[in-house]
Design a protein around this nucleic acid. Structure first.
Length: 544
DNA sequence: TCGCCTCGCACTTTTGAATCGA
DNA sequence: ATCGATTCAAAAGTGCGAGGCG
């Protein structure tokens, strides 16, 4: 069992001060951490009984109270300061450091679904030049976003809190046609992983009333995807810390690697190392002064105002790690609640957007960036795999359309890997979004791109502008969701990879798919063009 | 020529089946 | 027959360097 020694004591540096809209009981609680009643036992489907007191106490642990700590934060910071790079390969490569979190504050009896997505951090492509990362132009068209659902999902809060939650099996690939469900990234681009915690409903599913979720972002987990390491310091950090790379470690008594190299008359110092040392002779002799450090320092410029952050730095100034939401931890609360048959999604958004009338027309739709989170939950690609494996394989379109048959049809195969629309994580991208046309990959964006735009998208918020908690109501009706199901069929015709056998369908994952799929309707091509919004600088948004 | 990517290699850890004993 | 511990081979993960490609 891994220890949580790497957890920071102040992971929740940023919290939404208000309860999620749509949480009827929590909506009126001024201090959710202390007084939010949370979901009632009835709402959770737990009948009153002898353990009513315990249940009531547990019910107080609402989604807002969930705290997430990044495991091995110090290690992450080391990489971050050097400029984290993640290898992406055609077959898929794990992340290192692996993404592990410690979760607290969950209702032990409530079931949650944990998932990760990785979103572009900005609109730039990078190159490693002069021993530092520099902007090398505009980003390539975003890859189809995919979600990595933790294989234990859904599980009770007790389960999640019992031990570290590890996403180490998450794999990154640069294969645009990847059939394994790995997260597809562009090389030489900067990305930001995000953790989402979704409360499952009484049926262990998404999407019913009172479904809520929150998003956690650890800026130090941002990275630049590469096909081979560019920064020697990162290579060394990987070798020093990754057990699988032990073979490349040097040691006082027996340097196997050196011995092997010498035996082959290879240079002891690799070419890349030599190159970088020539470029930067002082590299090894000076403390980290790389671009990420500068960026790190730039993080000081982010201000906390009413629990939100202001971004004062420009991306050009900060080639790396210039995520507007830079902070120890970003947390956004969301809540989904059906209203008149429609779903209502509480999402972070700028006030002006939130205060828009409920019937948001196209103009508004185009003019204002949508809630970033609404984009990420867009399962235009769904998959299945064994319940305890990462959900990485595709099913059939009608199975995705199983959203229409949840109640009266046999549940479709598991479906928990989702395609999402990806947009830069940064807020400044809002200002440049017109210059970064969204060009979805046809084979992947079948569902996302072919779906009509969300007919009506309204946003409301009771929070002040500086409050990063806001809500967007997805007014698409359930029937509308169902009608669009079959379009999300891209990879389902593909055969399952070897070693992956289909398991009996999982109703909860099917419902999860439904829930996420229902969030895709702001992900039309038009919206993707527009919605390069940032989730961390909401308070900076204006009506344009 | 250059930058980026793919591939195969050697090395390591992880995983799971097989075996054994209590 | 069951359960837990141990062993071991296969699978999987890792960075490296050579070579290909545009």
């Amino acid at each position: 069992m891994l220890q949580d020694k790497g957890l920071s004591e102040s992971e929740e540096a940023f919290r939404a001060p208000g309860p999620a809209l749509g949480e009827a009981s929590a909506a009126n609680a001024p201090e959710p951490a202390l007084a939010a009643p949370g979901l009632s036992g009835a709402a959770l489907g737990s009948p009153p009984g002898p353990g009513a007191d315990v249940a009531a106490a547990a019910a107080e642990q609402t989604i807002e109270n969930i705290k997430v700590g990044l495991h091995e934060k110090e290690l992450w910071k080391k990489f971050h300061e050097a400029g984290t790079e993640m290898i992406i390969t055609k077959a898929g490569r794990r992340m290192f450091p692996s993404y592990k979190v410690k979760v607290t504050g969950m209702n032990p009896k409530t079931k949650y679904i944990l998932l990760i997505d990785i979103v572009p951090a900005d609109d730039h492509r990078y190159k490693f030049c002069d021993n530092k990362w520099m902007v090398a132009g505009k980003a390539e068209p975003a890859m189809p976003g995919r979600l990595y659902v933790h294989p234990d999902s859904p599980a009770t809060g007790a389960h999640w809190m019992r031990q570290l939650v590890s996403f180490q099996k998450l794999k990154l690939t640069n294969n645009h046609l990847d059939p394994f469900g790995h997260i597809i990234l562009n090389s030489m681009h900067k990305y930001q992983p995000r953790l989402h915690i979704v409360k499952a409903d009484e049926n262990n599913a998404f999407g019913s009333k009172n479904t809520a979720f929150c998003t956690h972002v650890f800026p130090e987990t941002s990275f630049i995807s590469v096909t081979s390491y560019q920064n020697h310091k990162i290579t060394q950090l990987k070798i020093e810390n990754n057990p699988f790379a032990k073979g490349f470690r040097g040691s006082d008594d027996s340097d196997l690697r050196v011995a092997r190299l010498q035996s082959k008359e290879y240079p002891v110092i690799s070419k890349s190392i030599m190159r970088q040392r020539l470029i930067s002779p002082q590299l090894s002799a000076t403390p980290d002064v790389g671009p990420l450090l500068g960026t790190h320092q730039a993080l000081q410029h982010y201000q906390h105002e009413n629990g939100a952050h202001s971004q004062l730095a420009e991306p050009q100034d900060l080639p790396l790690s210039t995520f507007p939401a830079q902070r120890d931890s970003s947390l956004f609360y969301h809540c989904l609640k059906r209203r008149d048959g429609a779903r209502h999604l509480d999402l972070p958004c700028k006030r002006s957007y939130l205060e828009a009338p409920s019937s948001v027309g196209e103009d508004h739709y185009f003019r204002s960036p949508p809630p970033y989170d609404q984009q990420m939950l867009s399962p235009s690609y769904c998959s299945e795999v064994t319940p305890r494996e990462a959900c990485m394989y595709s099913g059939s379109g009608p199975e995705i359309a199983g959203v229409s048959g949840v109640d009266d049809l046999p549940p479709p195969p598991l479906s928990c890997n989702m395609w999402t629309s990806v947009s830069p994580y940064t807020s400044y991208s809002v200002q440049t979004m017109e210059t970064v046309p969204y060009q979805p990959f046809p084979t992947h964006f079948t569902a996302t791109t072919m779906m009509p735009r969300l007919p009506t998208l309204s946003a409301q918020s009771s929070q002040p502008p500086g409050n990063a908690h806001f809500s967007v109501y997805n007014q698409l009706s359930q029937s509308q969701v169902r009608e669009r199901g079959p379009s999300a069929s891209f990879p389902r015709e593909r055969g399952l990879p070897p070693g992956c056998e289909r398991k009996p369908p999982s109703p909860h994952l099917n419902a999860a798919n439904e829930f996420l799929y229902s969030q895709t309707f702001s992900l039309s091509r038009e919206s993707s063009l527009q919605y390069h919004s940032g989730m961390g600088t909401v308070e900076n948004w204006t009506d344009g």
